[in-house]
Each structure stands twice: as structure tokens, then as C-alpha cells.
Amino acid sequence: MRRAFVVASALLLAAFALQFVFAAVGAFTEPAHDGGYALHSVNGLAVIPALTLLAALFAALAKAPGRVIGLTLLPLGFVILQELLVTLVHAFTDDAGGSTPLGLTIGGLHAVNGIIAVHVVVGVLRAARKLAEPVAVA
């Protein structure tokens, strides 16, 4: 189970890396439309939560410390916060549906939250690798 925890954590980190690629795809799609962010949405709302739950399950089955299991579940909180930030961005548009300074600032927090989530997942992967290291027999 420890090796499975490492693999699931590595896949979760890869999904987060792809999330930035998919955001760029959406940002650079011409003409701009909501369909450009489809991969970003599917990955963020389905793949990342599923891999988070899978990694947490393997962490628990590998008898990881409670702190590590909690850290492994933390990306779900980041996903929820991301959706809240997106909702707020859309709430703070002008009457014509255009961006406002407040909406753009909240949108920037969406990116910062994603960066923080990646750092957490790097910590999860490190903890998984450490847990999977062979124990030295004296």
C-alpha cells in the first residue's frame, strides 16, 4: 500500500501540473469562450478530487500518520476554495459582464490558491516517499 500511496501522490502532482497547462489552453484559445476551459474544469472538478481521495485511501491503508492523511485530503479543500473564487469572480463583473478590478483580484487569488495546492501535493509526495523507504534493520 505504501508504494500505491507514492504512485497516487505522483499522479495527483501530475494532475496539478496539467491543471496549469489546461488553464493556459483556456486563456489562449481564440476566439475566447467557455469551451477553452473544459479540460481545466474536468481535471479540477473530477480528476483531482478522485486522485486526492485515492491517495488518502492509500495513505490510510499504508498506516500513514494522521497528519499525513490530513495533508493528503487538503487538496479537496483547495478545490472547494477554487470554485468559491470562480463564483466570486463571476459575481464581481460590471453590468455589461466585463471584468472589474475586484473580480480580477479574486481571479488572481484563484491562481495563488493553485500554486499553494501544488506545494501541498509536493509535501504529500515527499511524505509518501519517506513512508515507502525501507526500514533499516539493526
Results as ranks from 00 to 15, higher is better:
A4T: 07
N113W: 08
F16S: 05
R3K: 13
P134H: 15
L76W: 13
V86A: 12
Q82K: 09
R67Q: 08
F5A: 07
G44Q: 08
G36A: 01
M1A: 14
S41E: 01
L102Q: 03
I115H: 07
P75L: 08
P65Y: 12
F78S: 14
V25S: 03
T93A: 05
E133H: 13
Y37L: 01
I116A: 15
V6A: 08
G70Y: 12
M1C: 11
L45K: 14
H110T: 10
A8P: 05
D94L: 02
G98V: 00
L11T: 11
P75Q: 13
A46Y: 15
H90Y: 13
P101F: 06
L39A: 13
H40P: 02
A50F: 15
L88H: 04
A38Y: 10
E83A: 08
P49C: 09
V42A: 11
F16M: 10
L18Y: 12
Q82E: 10
H110L: 05
F20A: 14
A117G: 15
G26E: 00
V86L: 06
G107T: 10
L102E: 04
T87W: 11
F28R: 06
V7P: 09
A32S: 03
A46N: 03
Y37A: 01
F22Y: 14
V79P: 01
A128S: 12
Q19P: 00
A138F: 15
A23V: 04
A15K: 07
